[in-house]
Write a protein that binds this DNA or RNA. Structure first.
Lengths: 245, 245
DNA sequence: AAAACTCGATACCGTGCGGTATCGGATACT
DNA sequence: AGTATCCGATACCGCACGGTATCGAGTTTT
């Protein structure tokens, strides 16, 4: 509550993203642009939060990790909550887009569900850090009506997007799915998330291809002769692959 | 680190759970027994933690909710971590036992999987508060190797128990399951958990019987003529049922 | 060039936490 | 009954956090 000390809230930002690229003579801006600082903070926040968890991380840690100070953080974000929110929104959007784009291209191919599953699997395994963050955010949102509502809306969007995708794929299938697209989307998200959590706790318990196999099975393994459970004979490594961060 | 002020650590507890039930003349013990106080604290902790989350709750809140003070809590638990751990262990054990017992009785009946699904569904819907807690605990354990290892071991036990149960049920089936019991157990846990999370965020997105239907489908709906989705025709309410707390 | 403004660094504050020392009344031992 | 012991209440400590005020270097405007 109570808006940030000053600026930042009142639109009308000029965003002077020009007028310094015209000469090197102007000796390389000493002060970085606002958006750059914001990025640094956001990236650092992701790193730090991924490492120790959101609750256990202080804004100071984030600032230091960004090569800045707390003052800089507070100059760009109204509060810790604000920072966390921004981070989640950004990543969530990116994630969703990536996942959906990844299988939208499979629009034509008949085995769209396989691709969709693969996309989800990939997103899940590659982004262990993100999943951890998401899980914590879910947990902390459970208790705060404000956050909860926001999360609900966002989750709904994602679910609907997945549902639409499912519906599109299902159209191209001969057999009918045993669930409505909405239900299917819910199951897919739940399963993806749930398996990510299990894998996070005990990587050995979650074979790489488990999600894919379950989804195929649910889909009625209509199109597939591929009951074969080992698509790539060499993709055997388990253990959370330490994505990046 | 550094053990609690005194006592409590050195085994050899007499556990004087007797010798006061012999006369009412002894006018109703003024001071409750250790174990009773412990129970009060544990119960209060569950309530408080469920309400605001573990991280956001202070030991003082817990103590007050228990009708005690912080001193009492620290007299019974070495630290906040210790309290949380005790709470989780206890509830986890109880949950597992209940769930497994609930379907172990279905050992003879041929439609064991239906019962198992039902048991999981019930556990999931009835214990929304517990699921929330578990989710938060998962999240906070991700970042702490110590807790993480403990959780891994415990999770493995649960998984194995479910796997054994699945194997037993699968034996009685004519068709074969498309997964190993271990995989099946993982999927069941992940799905149960995942759906609980989704339901927690947006109850409307998760129909009451969704988990059951998915499990039946995965099981190859072999044994079932019982596709009938309404075991109790009146159990229709959705929306997190506000279990208790 | 000089005024006006932006933004991040520094220093600081209040708060509420986890945890500790201690004390006193109730209980168990003999 | 007298005494040793237990256990929870009270009071307190140190600390690190989120957040704020302010100042000055850097940047834009006129």
């Amino acid at each position: 509550m109570a808006y940030p000390p000053s600026g930042s809230g009142d639109g009308a930002n000029r965003d002077p993203e020009h007028a310094d690229r015209l000469a090197d003579a102007v000796p390389t801006r000493k002060r970085p642009h606002r958006s750059q600082t914001r990025r640094q903070v956001l990236d650092a926040a992701f790193t730090v939060f991924s490492e120790h968890g959101i609750a256990a991380s202080s804004l100071n840690e984030v600032a230091v990790a960004a090569g800045l100070t707390k003052g800089a953080v507070y100059s760009n974000f109204a509060s810790k909550d604000d920072l966390v929110l921004a981070l989640m929104e950004e990543h969530a959007a990116a994630r969703t887009d990536a996942a959906l784009a990844g299988f939208a291209s499979a629009d034509d191919s008949r085995h769209g569900l396989v691709d969709l599953a693969a996309a989800l699997v990939h997103a899940m395994r590659a982004d262990a850090a993100w999943h951890r963050l998401l899980a914590e955010y879910f947990a902390m949102s459970s208790h705060d009506p404000r956050r909860r509502e926001g999360l609900r809306r966002r989750r709904r969007e994602v679910r609907d997007a997945v549902a639409r995708a499912v519906a599109r794929v299902a159209d191209g299938l001969d057999t009918e799915l045993p669930f409505t697209p909405a239900e299917m989307a819910t199951v897919m998200l739940a399963l993806s998330n749930g398996l990510a959590v299990e894998a996070d706790i005990d990587p050995d318990a979650v074979p790489e291809d488990l999600l894919g196999r379950v989804l195929l099975l649910i889909a009625g393994d209509a199109d597939t002769g591929a009951r074969t459970r080992s698509p790539s004979a060499e993709d055997h490594r388990r253990g959370t692959p330490q994505p990046d961060s």
